[in-house]
Amino acid sequence: MARLNFFYNTDTCQYEPIKVKKKEVILNSLGLLSVSLILALIITVIFNTYFDTPTEALLKKENKTLSFHLASLAETYDDAATMMKVLKQRDTQLYTEIYDVEPNANSLVPESPLAYLKEDILQPHAYKKEVIGNFGHEVENILLQTEKSNSKLKEIFDIANKKIGDLEFIPTIQPVSNPDQSALVSGFGMRINPFHHGNIMHEGIDFSAPRGTPVYATATGTVNFIKKSEANTGFGNQVKIEHGNGFETKYTHLQEIIIKEGQEVKKGEIIGHVGSTGGIIAPAVHYELIQNGKKIDPVNYMIEGLVEAEYVKLLELALQKNQSLD
């Protein structure tokens, strides 16, 4: 048992035990606590300055390593970005020298809207599925309505088909496969001649394609003219097809012709292969459309198999006032 402490009370002239007051206990405890807090703070500061916790040590190391690699990679990236600028300039320069027009700054290569469809809609990512799921009900409704309009449209198309007659005899396709439209390099109208650089009438469309690419009949018809020429000027090896309704098409600069005069050809049938016979600077087909003896712009008919955006792209390319290939 603790010794009792007394004090001498001068009023009562007696020794009385000292009573420990609550207030004093609290004050004492608070003192103790504040000293403890100050100590805790000092400990933390010292510890932080001279030691690291394992997590901190790991982070420190990682930050240092990552910063080092980031700086080195960023430097390499800067070099690459500078190089890319040079490459783009050279690309523009080449394009300009070949076509006599600047390339479209917005799109280096005409993008196929179909590619977009495939990636973004036909193969939805997980989150898109979720979004689509939410709209499921609405989609169902729309589908129902679409089905209704579809049958209506089918009726209209049936009537239209009867009126128009067979599209087979109208040259609505392109003479070479042209999935991203970029094969069309020069359109109908005044164009710069690649040899003497004079501005002259270019009465057809040039489709550039690698040597040997198949050339298709753009509509069903009869081959009514074939001419082969070794000369390095003019149209070289050429084919003309008569389609009826006053339409004729002409395919020139072919490497070889695999049909005969008088032969019937179907729309899309291969008539020959791309070459550079005659006066042309690159392997290409110079394609002409003749209506009632007059040469007209074939792009106006090249609608088959194209969605609107693709056709717009084709039209833009055809309207460029650039250099023709022949």
């Binding site: 490459l87 783009k88 690309d91 080449l94 394009y95 070949i98 280096l108 290569v109 991203d180 970029s182 094969a183 390099v185 550039s208 394609a209 690698p210 040597r211 550079s276 600077i281 690159a282 392997p283 290409a284 290939l325």
Partner: peptide, 15 residues
Amino acid sequence: QLEIRDDNIYRTILD
């Protein structure tokens, strides 16, 4: 994109 243009346009045109 540059590679595509190189292969599809320049190399086609320049044969």
